[in-house]
Design a protein around this nucleic acid. Structure first.
Lengths: 112, 112
DNA sequence: ATCCTTTGATTTATATAAAGATCATTAAGC
DNA sequence: GCTTAATGATCTTTATATAAATCAAAGGAT
């Protein structure tokens, strides 16, 4: 990440990450697990779990999802296996779509 | 990240990230945007967008969510503003819960 | 009220993610 | 079939996320 990149995030994105972190903390408390215990189960440091629960935007998505999964939070869908099914359907659809997007060289006469 | 940490991810987590990436690519194609264009709108490099669409687990969650948001993918819920409402409710609940989890010093006689 | 576990915050060292550039490959549009 | 834009892949540099350790503060349990 060269030359000090400044990132901006929409409110929606910030809320989404914050929500996920709050859900994790809530679930952890309900299950009576300490931060250290959950961190150990996820194979991460307690400090990182702190940042995740706080809704830090710079955490690796894989780690955040893994913690959520371990603590029992269903991502995207509530019913079982819905995610996998959805993934399958999406991949099938992708195979039928154009492999690349191409701009029209000349502005088309979009008449009608 | 000292001493070369090896991370493991559950299939569910990997699928979830892969799904999100696939959804982003699908939406991008439907909207006839090039990778460079979407990357520019998100303020990231094309290379990073490639990794996101490929379902790379090491990308920052904030960036992934931001791209998803920009391209119009609703996170967690389908109906409008559901996320924010959910966040609000969760935060209220958190205020009522114990601030820390504590292990029983002596194994309790869990009799019944 | 006291004890001590849990959590919050900070610091340092290090592994690595991301930007930017470049080249090869693919495939849309003509 | 050509052309060339779009994508895929790789390399280097640099900023930074993370692990680990430490200390302070908070708050259950007794």
């Amino acid at each position: 990440m060269p030359k000090s990149i400044i990132r901006t995030y929409s409110r929606y994105s910030r809320d989404a990450v914050a929500l996920l972190g709050a859900l994790i903390r809530e679930a952890r408390n309900e299950r009576k697990l300490t931060a250290q215990e959950l961190a150990d189960r996820a194979g991460i440091s307690r400090g990182l779990l702190q940042r995740i629960e706080k809704g830090n935007l710079k955490c690796e998505i894989g780690v955040v999802f893994e913690v959520a999964t371990i603590i029992g939070i269903k991502l995207f869908d509530t019913d079982e296996n819905a995610l996998t099914k959805h993934l399958g359907r999406t991949k099938e659809k992708l195979a039928l779509l154009p492999k690349s997007v191409r701009k029209k060289s000349i502005p088309v006469h979009d008449d009608f």
